[in-house]
């Protein structure tokens, strides 16, 4: 009996020692858990570093905003300086303008005793043809020779209308 029992025990021991002591399911589960942990760590690290990266970017942007605001203020200030009346006065003086005082306003009063000169009649400049085809020259000459059509005077208009009315 004892022998039998002993032999059974040794049999089972040899069986356990010779085969896989942990079932593969457990191994898989452990592996999964380990993998999950590693992935978790990986994601945590990634998010941590990305948050730091975002933080750095954020602080840079903040700094940029501050700098831009500062620039904006400086520009406003320089605009105001440029538009100040004193600066405008300076600029006007630079380009040769002077303040309007009685001393620098010159009013011309013509001498009543002086003989009035006849106004000069400016002659109509003759058209010069330079490197133009002869056809064009002829057309222009024709237009010059033709008597100018008189524009209907204001007085003529009512007469014409009266005639038209009479005809009607």
């Amino acid at each position: 009996m004892n022998k039998r029992k002993q032999s059974a025990k040794t049999q089972t021991q040899t069986k356990r020692r010779g085969g896989d002591p942990i079932p593969w399911k457990y191994c898989l589960l452990t592996l999964c858990c380990g993998l999950l942990l590693v992935v978790g760590f990986f994601f945590a690290a990634r998010s941590h570093f990305s948050s730091i990266d975002f933080g750095i970017k954020n602080s840079r942007l903040r700094k940029q905003i501050d700098e831009l605001e500062g620039d904006k203020r400086r520009l406003i200030l320089s605009k105001e300086i440029a538009l100040s009346p004193a600066e405008i006065k300076k600029a006007a003086k630079k380009i040769g303008l002077t303040e309007m005082n009685a001393s620098n306003i010159e009013v011309y009063r013509p001498n009543p005793n002086a003989v009035k000169e006849k106004p000069k009649v400016i002659e109509k400049p003759k058209l010069e043809f330079l490197n133009k085809p002869e056809e064009v020259k002829k057309e222009v000459k024709k237009s010059e020779d033709k008597p100018e059509k008189k524009a209907p005077d204001a007085k003529d208009k009512p007469e014409r209308t009266k005639v038209q009315l009479a005809k009607k």
Binding site: D53, G55, S59
Partner: peptide, 13 residues
């Protein structure tokens, strides 16, 4: 308060 990394860059404020 500004949190800086080892290079002195601000990552949190």
């Amino acid at each position: 308060w500004q949190d800086r990394d080892r290079l002195g860059r601000v990552y949190d404020q």
